[in-house]
Every structure is written in structure tokens, then in C-alpha cells.
Nucleic acid binder design. Structure first.
Lengths: 119, 119
DNA sequence: CTAACGTGCAACCTGATGGTTGTATTTCAC
DNA sequence: GTGAAATACAACCATCAGGTTGCACGTTAG
């Protein structure tokens, strides 16, 4: 039995809509999603990330920076490198937001069922 | 009753990254998320939606149109009204994408555990 | 020490986004 | 039948996003 405890982020400060905007906006780009995927698997430097994309190093740098300010990845200095690492907690946060929408839907179904049962 | 079909079928096997882009992009706006929330609870016309936002009717129309082309809501004609209704399946789709990322993270943890166990 | 590497950053361009207003069309109420 | 309501749509505008190039700077390798 698995217990889900992903409502953690909700009992703190209500996540401002700007923060949520930034998270989903950051997820709305295939290159950035790929960076998340790769850095979930293992830490990578920006240049090693940049090698596989058909765009300039600076463009990849910008994508990483977007992900950092959305809280989806961390960047840590190791010598001249910056190692990028995904933050699963933020991903889980986005997941929990979507789950709340699904819950609204379930509540609606429950209410409709209740209406039918009342007949 | 007329149903508008300018959405993309997301049941298609490989959800092209453009489709995913559009889903997350559509979610990256507080007004649009609120429209989703309200139309998950119950169907609403565009004008009834527009009443509560501090922007023009046309702006709300555009937001709805963005949501439609992301497959996050449906628009159905009832007389002179267009009733907007959220599509929980697309929301669930976005959720499942995030869940896949989380799975990558778990796989990584498992591999690290395995490395430790090998010692 | 010096050259190459990895990065940060600014300036710039282009297309997309999010808002506006105005006009046309269809439908409903009276 | 006429006017108001609900919507569609186009044109327009300001800002933002995603890409580029060029240059500066710390770090590492030889």
C-alpha cells in the first residue's frame, strides 16, 4: 500500500498564481521537458545538455534559466561547470494541482449521482 | 446541437510534442485555469464566464479558444449560447505525463539503491 | 603561462501572446 | 418585426519568448 502525501505544498503559503504560471509555462516546451527528463536521470552540465540540441549554447542556457526560475531544476557550481539537476518536488507539485482539478470533476460526478439517487 | 471539432485527438498514439506544448501552455494562465475549474464543476456559457473577469468579452473568448485548441475544454452550441465544458481526460493526460517524470526519478533512486546494495 | 573550455550576459530580431475596439451575424424576448 | 443578447472575427498594439551573435570572465589542461 502506497500512501500519497503530495498535499504538502498546499499547507504552506498558497502558491501564487504567478508561480504556477511559471511552472506550467516552463513545461510547455519540448526542449525544456527533455532537459527535465535527462536531469532527473542524472545530473548534467549545461554544455553536455547543449551538445544534443540543434540550437546555440546560449539558447540552452536560457532554457535552463527558465527551468531554474520555475523551480523545476537546480543549478550548482562545480569548478567551471554548472551541474543541472531536476527537482522532483516541483514536478510533484504540478501533478498535485492537476489532481485537484480531477477531484473537482469527481465531486461533480458524485453530485450528479446524488441527484439521480434522489429520484 | 453542433459540436466544434477544432481540437486534436489526444488518443492518437504518439502525442506530438506540439500537442503537449499546447496543453501546458494553456494551463499557464490563471484565467484559463479558473475557466477549467468552473467548467469542471458545471457547464457555463462564455458570457457567464466573462462576467467575473476584469477583461473584455473578446479576451475571455480568446482564452476559451486557447483551451479548446489544447483539448482542455469543449464548446457546444445551444441556441445563441456556446456552453463550455472541461475535458477531464485531457487533464488526466497532462497528469500522466508528469507521473512519467516522477517515475524516472523513482527509477533513478532504485538504481542508486542498487549501487549501494552492490557494495 | 597560455590556450581552450564552460559559463554569464547583453543586444538584437522575429513571431507569438494577451489584451483592446469595432463590426457583423444569429438567436431570443417582447 | 425589432431590439437586445451572445457570439464570431478582424485589425491593431504592446509585451514577451525564443532564438541569434558577440564579448567578458573564471577555471582547467598542457
Amino acid at each position: 500500500m502506497v500512501v500519497f502525501h503530495d498535499t504538502v505544498a498546499l499547507d504552506a503559503e498558497p502558491p501564487s498564481s504567478e508561480v504556477v504560471d511559471r511552472i506550467f509555462r516552463a513545461l510547455a516546451d519540448a526542449t525544456r521537458r527533455d532537459i527535465i527528463r535527462r536531469t532527473l536521470i542524472e545530473e548534467e552540465s549545461i554544455s553536455s545538455l547543449a551538445e544534443t540540441y540543434d540550437m546555440s549554447f546560449a539558447a540552452v542556457q536560457k532554457h535552463v534559466s527558465t527551468l531554474v526560475s520555475a523551480g523545476l531544476v537546480d543549478k550548482t557550481a562545480h569548478g567551471r561547470e554548472r551541474r543541472v539537476r531536476a527537482r522532483p518536488d516541483t514536478i510533484r507539485h504540478a501533478q498535485s494541482l492537476l489532481r485537484q482539478y480531477e477531484q473537482l470533476w469527481r465531486d461533480r460526478i458524485d453530485r450528479l449521482d446524488q441527484l439521480l439517487a434522489d429520484d
